[in-house]
Each structure stands twice: as C-alpha cells, then as structure tokens.
Design a binder for these strands. Structure first.
Lengths: 122, 122
DNA sequence: GATAAATGCAACTAAAAAGTTGCGTTTTGT
DNA sequence: ACAAAACGCAACTTTTTAGTTGCATTTATC
C-alpha cells in the first residue's frame, strides 16, 4: 500500500470523491438565478422557458443559458412538446451532492468525537 | 394574502429560500480545487496554507485565493498561530446547504407521490 | 543578528461567465 | 394563408474568476 502523506495527516479526499462532475453540480447550484430555477422545478412541474423566464429579471436567452448550465450538470432535463421546450428536475445529481455534504458533516463529527475523547483521556 | 402566480403553479422558492448567501456556499464548493480543500479539512485538522498547497498543482497564492472564497462563503475559518495561518472547516454553512438539497429532494418526492395518486385515480 | 520559512499585498494576464441584441426557424391558431 | 407565440443560433460587450509573478513583512531558528 502507498505510504501516507507526510504533510497532511487525515486526507479524506478518497472518502469525499471530489470529482469534477460533482463540482459541476455545485457550481450549477452556485448562482441565485439557477438556484431559484431549481426551487421552482422541484415542485414537479415541467415548465417552458417562457414560463421560467417570467420569474426572473433577465432575458429569455439568459434563462436559456442558465438552463444549459444546469443541464450539463445533470440537474435538469428537457422534453420537447410541440413548439415548447419543457424543463423538469432530475434529482439524481442533487441527491449525490446531498450525500457528499452528508459525508463531510459525518467526517467532521467523527473528528470532533476523537478530539473530545483525547481531551478527556487521563 | 397575495394572489398566486398565474404562470407558475407550484413555486416552492419560498420553501427553498434560494438566498444569495446559500448560492455563495454552493459556488464555493463548485470548484474541484476548493472541493478537495474541503475534503481535506473535514477530517478535523487545522492546516497551514503551505500544507494545503502541497496537495494541489497551483501556487500558494492560488490556494490562498481559493481559501478566501471559501471563507467568504463561511465554509472555512482561519486561526493565526505564530507565523502560520491555520485553516479549519466550519460545518454550519455546509449543513445549511445539505438541508436545502434535502428539501429539494423531499419536494420532488411529494410531487411524484401526487402524480402517482392522480394516475391511479379511477 | 543573520537566515530561512510562512505569509501578505499588489499588479498583471488570460480565460470563463453573464447577459444582451438581432435575426431566423418552427409551430400554433384563426 | 398569415400572424403571433416559442424558441434557436450567433455575435458581441462587460464582468468575474483563476492563476501567476514579484516583492515586502513577520516569525522562528541557529
């Protein structure tokens, strides 16, 4: 097995799996407009670009670009219906991101527990 | 009470609270280097900039900038120890982000359930 | 006290992102 | 057939981000 890093004692990057696709999901959610789009779509609806634009302050093309960012991250999907393009949430990637944050919190909790045990040791 | 939006039937943006500070947390996590920094720090350690730089391909000043982004999002905190500046995780904002993703998943599940009930209705 | 380590500060370049405008295409409805 | 709705495509500007280099400052060590 490989020798542990001499500089960083407790690298958990193997546990977290900080992949580029995961970072892409977080980056997609890291914009107020896109986050609101997700908040609207999580209610289960399949909404057109025009409908989604009505909730924002930017142009239709601006919303289209944001939807493309979300789509490339796998957060939303589109279905063509006649002259409309309906967008709906795809919760798989969001669930993956949630699990990552969950693991980070757990790792932190474990570290705190170890520190506590060390402090209480006689 | 205000009239419901005529265009969007099920806006859950009130439930999600898509604030700018929350988007800032997601944006901070939306970079592979920063995500790895968080993965390293979630093990509980307080590491210096030089130590954190050893895990990346970029310069020390580049890492410093990434840490500043994480700090402005409230994801990490710094403590000065002598000539070193030690960084550690602050899990509060990450927990808030996790809860948001949790709510999105739940809202989606509720929407699916309603759709299922509607499809099964005689 | 001199030296090396760890960092801060500022200027700079390059690349990506955000947003717009203009115009063309497809589809719906009368 | 024609007009309006919904959208795509492409060019463009502006702003932000990522990353670097150079030099100054603080702190530990011999």
């Amino acid at each position: 097995m490989p020798a542990p890093s001499p500089l960083v004692a407790h690298d958990r990057s193997d546990v977290i799996h900080a992949s580029d696709t995961l970072a892409r999901v977080f980056a997609a959610l890291g914009d107020p407009i896109r986050l609101k789009l997700v908040a609207v779509l999580c209610a289960g609806g399949a909404l057109s670009i025009a409908q989604l634009t009505a909730n924002t302050d930017i142009s239709r093309q601006g919303v289209t670009k944001h939807l493309q960012v979300l789509a490339e991250a796998g957060v939303v999907r589109d279905v063509k219906m006649g002259r409309e393009r309906l967008w709906q949430l795809d919760p798989a990637q969001i669930e993956g991101a949630r699990q990552t944050l969950d693991v980070i919190g757990h790792e932190w909790g474990i570290a705190l527990q170890k520190l506590k045990l060390f402090a209480e040791s006689p």
